[in-house]
Design a binder for these strands. Structure first.
Lengths: 253, 253
DNA sequence: CCAAAAGTGTTGAACATACACCCATGT
DNA sequence: ACATGGGTGTATGTTCAACACTTTTGG
């Protein structure tokens, strides 16, 4: 079927990734250092062009694997080892957002357990996990001891902020916080995820009762561990439940 | 700055609109009948191409005004007369979703008060409000008395379902339900919005206490009305609060 | 008077917080 | 022994669902 290609404008379409993990009690995002203009030397979110016959989710999964080695798994699928939660976040299409040309970027949000080390992708640019506070907050970004020293390239600060906000609100009413944990984890480890993502302290006793009392949230594996020190803790896997009812309550700020 | 346009694939970018309203106790969506191939004669969501120098939100607002005469207002802005809530929903980019070419569609969700009548836009194709159940449910869609008789064109059934789901969950924890009401409304009218969107019955007494007891949700205007019959009811405007804490509770299904 | 919708009071169950207290390990 | 994190019990307050009851209109 013929169609006049001059009847509509042409766009480039990219996917950008907000990849979040919890490291050393802080919520961190994956950042790559740009080599080429525009914004050479600045940190940015990983991402790339969508291919001609590629679905948006497939493009996001491909970029995720290129940058981290993680495979994506669809929501409510058994958590495989080396797999991350991946979902569409939002789309950014300001005509001026890329100085080269008109680019519409479909941002995705990925949540991953703490990984041994970020691995350089097919292109060997530098990659690192940076605390989101350093990436977003101007004051800390310009502190001399901060490892990032300028705002993110393009509109990536906005995209990252939206991704963080999505993660913060979603762990409230879904079991998504388990995506930050390894396959087997303790209640205390899960609690530290909530504390890092929300930036608050939670009562360990009430948290324990809450998560173990929500049917389908956690499944005991039978094993125990003392990797956190102290009394051995039961190990759990994520259960089948995806929505939490009643939700976890985020304390007032 | 030169850039090689053959280095990346070209896409067409459209906006599609899920415009919802509550009419005669039912949640309804705006549908347009297609004149041209593909899917001639089938119902579809309103939408169109994003222009070369147009932001995504601006394109959605333009299409909304062309189809309905409604202006869009940003979140948490005073509700103007003839203005609708508009927000980005999600982006759909399956390579096969449009048989003509590669089209990425950025769907938006609009919530509007019940309007006198849908008005034909710049192009004079037919437009109507259809109950979302008729548009989505195969069984009712093929009943002889249903006014729509085939599934929506393209992947619009999926987009509509996602928009309805977004609206259903958002009125739970935000004051968005007021976007379905006229500027001044009663507690009973607001309750009927929740009942239509969720498809449930709510206790009028508890609902009244809940919404009037949430600070910033409703502001009394001083007036009263008996347009629903019975004892005169106070009139309210939407207050400044956008998030509802605690949320409205959707009864179990 | 009766029907209909608005609004208030009350009660018992569910759930949240705060915190006292005990348990099982490593050093 | 003691520090550390895991886990249970219990008191107190808040919120919610259910429903009896009163108020103010139209017919």
């Amino acid at each position: 079927m013929p169609y006049d290609p001059s009847a509509f404008p042409h766009f480039a379409v990219t996917v950008d990734l907000v990849v979040l993990t919890v490291r050393r009690h802080a919520l961190c995002a994956l950042a790559v250092r740009r080599g080429e203009p525009p914004y050479p030397g600045r940190w940015a979110l990983p991402g790339g062009f969508v291919r001609a016959d590629e679905d948006l989710a497939a493009a996001a999964a491909r970029e995720l694997e290129e940058e981290t080695g993680l495979r994506a798994h669809a929501p409510s699928q058994p958590a495989l080892p080396n797999a991350a939660h991946l979902e569409q976040l939002a789309t950014y299409g300001d005509p001026q957002r890329d100085p080269r040309m008109r680019v519409v970027s479909v941002a995705h949000l990925a949540l991953a357990p703490d990984l041994p080390a970020p691995r350089a992708g097919g292109d060997a640019h530098s990659v690192r996990w940076a605390p989101v506070d350093d990436l977003l907050d101007q004051d800390t970004a310009f502190r001399h001891d901060a490892e990032v020293s300028a705002p993110l390239a393009f509109d990536h600060a906005r995209i990252l902020a939206d991704g963080v906000e999505r993660a913060r609100s979603k762990i409230e009413y879904s079991s998504l916080a388990t995506a930050f944990c390894p396959q087997e984890f303790t209640v205390g480890e899960l609690r530290r995820v909530y504390e890092a993502v929300w930036g608050v302290a939670l009562d360990p006793r009430n948290f324990h009762r809450k998560v173990t009392g929500t049917p389908g949230f956690l499944v005991p594996t039978g094993g125990t561990t003392t990797r956190q020190g102290g009394r051995p803790a039961q190990l759990f896997r994520a259960g089948g439940a995806t929505v939490l009812n009643p939700p976890m309550l985020r304390p007032e700020v």
